[in-house]
Design a protein around this nucleic acid. Structure first.
Lengths: 215, 215
DNA sequence: TAGATTGTTAATCGATTAACAATC
DNA sequence: TAGATTGTTAATCGATTAACAATC
């Protein structure tokens, strides 16, 4: 833990996001039978600078070949490993209302090794059911079920009011990362990763630009 | 248009996002009966720097009172106006599959004046229906219906394959902003605002940090 | 007035980009 | 070898933060 951290020069969040984008692009290239790609070509696809692509990759090793570029399959495998996508991550879905069931049905997550392994909700009509093979538990059983399934990642889709207590329970159950869709400011211990996804903010920034041109 | 742009010193995207966060916070404060708030207090709620809060606001005017801070109700009204949240925005929802209907049922959007005014989908089983009072049209009728309703914002929730042609049709229909949930790189004219929301990337950055601590 | 807090300038920090020696 | 492209250093750019005169 502390052992490896002296090696890594702390990675900018934007670099990690771009790695994720590169990784997806490389999969498409591989499917199309492309063997190698230069930082220049990769950059052009996303309106980035080629130096940025090289720098992003160089944080993690020397993956390229001078005069050639990067081998698509090899680089993709490296990125999958770096991003932790070379294995399956069981995920807890907490809250099975409108947004929760929407996220459950959204197939995008499954493609990259994230698998919803348990659903938690306090609605008695839902608890005990089984949705496409995934069991629905009461929130009170969260600690037990999260531990039993070695779940480290939770997707939080509960109303704003309940978000903090549920998060505390998740943390107590050993969750290490939370993807939060509840529009509320959450407190988590330093060793727990919290990522807020606020769909309203996205719309509001759009209306800012529309309102501006109308001013 | 060009008239107003010499006044505004181009606003950083992160500033706009923070305005949106401030605005929501101010609503809560107003509900709680708080009359004034200092940049320091506001900053503490989001782990920001007070100078940053003041700078964000100062892009748009002098809203504070020295020695006092900001009047909650007044500042909130200003931010609503700046963000274009002082009016209603009719929105088109394009794609009514899993994610689309999820977003439709997600009540978060409605709260701030965004109202889904039309749904578009090519599934004949859906076209012609009426969901909670919102009509479902075929994509072929998009231009007509978008214009009839003066819709400027579209939420795009179609599969990756169809995303670009649908976007072209939206642009042709006069759409000025697209919130894209399809995992594909879209091309739009310069005057159309495009915002990608990629839920998978959020999960992948989380697994990066989990994978890292395991290395 | 004394205390508090703004709006703004200048300093700092970090991320992006240009440039180029190394090397396939 | 000649041409291409990497990995990396140095320059640039932009955003965050500290500091403080202005002023309620």
């Amino acid at each position: 833990m502390a052992r490896s951290s002296y090696r890594l020069p702390k990675i900018p969040e934007m670099t990690v996001r771009r790695l994720s984008v590169y990784s997806r692009c490389l999969r498409e290239l591989e499917e199309d039978g492309v063997k190698t790609i230069s930082s220049q070509e990769l950059a052009e696809r996303f309106n980035l600078n080629s130096a940025q692509v090289r720098k992003d990759l160089a944080y993690f090793g020397e993956f390229g070949v001078r005069g050639i570029g990067y081998y698509v399959a090899g680089l993709r495998a490296e990125l999958q490993k770096i991003l932790g996508l070379d294995r399956e991550w069981p995920v807890a879905l907490v809250g099975f209302g409108n947004l929760g069931s929407a996220l459950f049905n959204y197939r995008g997550f499954g493609r990259q090794g994230f698998r919803i392994a348990a659903i938690f909700d306090d609605d008695p009509a839902k608890v005990g059911r089984d949705v496409d093979g995934v069991p629905v538990f009461a929130v009170v059983d969260m600690a037990r079920e999260v531990r039993a399934r070695s779940i480290q990642i939770a997707i939080l889709a509960v109303p704003a009011e309940g978000a903090q207590p549920v998060t505390d329970a998740l943390v107590a159950a050993g969750i290490k990362a939370v993807l939060n869709f509840a529009p509320s400011r959450l407190r988590v211990p330093r060793d727990v990763r919290l990522k807020d996804v606020d769909l309203s903010i996205e719309l509001e920034t759009l209306s800012f630009y529309l309102a501006k041109s109308g001013r």
